[in-house]
Simulated scan of single mutants.
Amino acid sequence: MPRILRPLFLSSLSAAAALAFMPAHADEDTERENLARLEHEIALLGEEVRAAKAHAPTLARVRFQYDDLARDLDLIRVGIAEHLNAPRQPRPIEPLKGDYRR
């Protein structure tokens, strides 16, 4: 992995690991916030990958496939975004009493 990507990759990996070990009873709002943060971090990582590609050696015998990495990151980011934008299940509502006279 190119040196330019290591710090960002490691910080994203540690953020993902921290989220993975959160208590199972975390509420939906916290999960949505965490997923939104991950989506943002992956978008930033995608920008770093594209910048690294611009500075990659063009005559190397074996070349790193930046386009494939960027595409995979985009797929992950889109998957998270689709989950975040999916309609939420309605919460059960207590029925109204309806009779207000005594």
Results as ranks from 00 to 15, higher is better:
A43V: 06
A60I: 04
Q89W: 02
Y66Q: 01
K97L: 14
A70N: 11
A52K: 08
A16W: 00
P23W: 00
Q65D: 15
E28D: 12
P92N: 08
H83W: 04
R71G: 02
R32F: 00
N85S: 13
G98W: 07
R77W: 00
L59N: 15
A36Q: 08
R32Q: 07
E31Q: 12
R6S: 07
R3F: 00
P57T: 13
R61Q: 04
M22D: 05
F21L: 08
A17F: 05
G79V: 04
I76M: 14
A54K: 13
L84M: 09
G46V: 00
E41T: 06
D67M: 10
K53S: 11
N85G: 13
L35P: 00
F21G: 05
L96E: 14
F21V: 11
Q89S: 12
L8F: 11
A51W: 12
I76G: 01
I93D: 03
F64E: 08
A15G: 01
A43F: 05
L8I: 03
P2D: 08
M22E: 12
F64Q: 02
L96I: 07
N85R: 14
L69F: 10
F9K: 02
L13E: 13
P90Y: 05
L44D: 11
L59M: 13
P7N: 11
E94P: 00
H40C: 07
L38T: 07
L45F: 15
D27M: 04
L5I: 07
A54G: 08
P92H: 08
N85I: 01
L10G: 02
F64T: 06
E31H: 05
L44Y: 04
S12P: 00
E94M: 09
P87S: 02
P57D: 15
L35W: 01
Q65I: 01
R32D: 13
D27A: 06
A52D: 10
P90G: 03
G79R: 14
H40V: 01
A86Y: 01
E33N: 06
L73H: 07
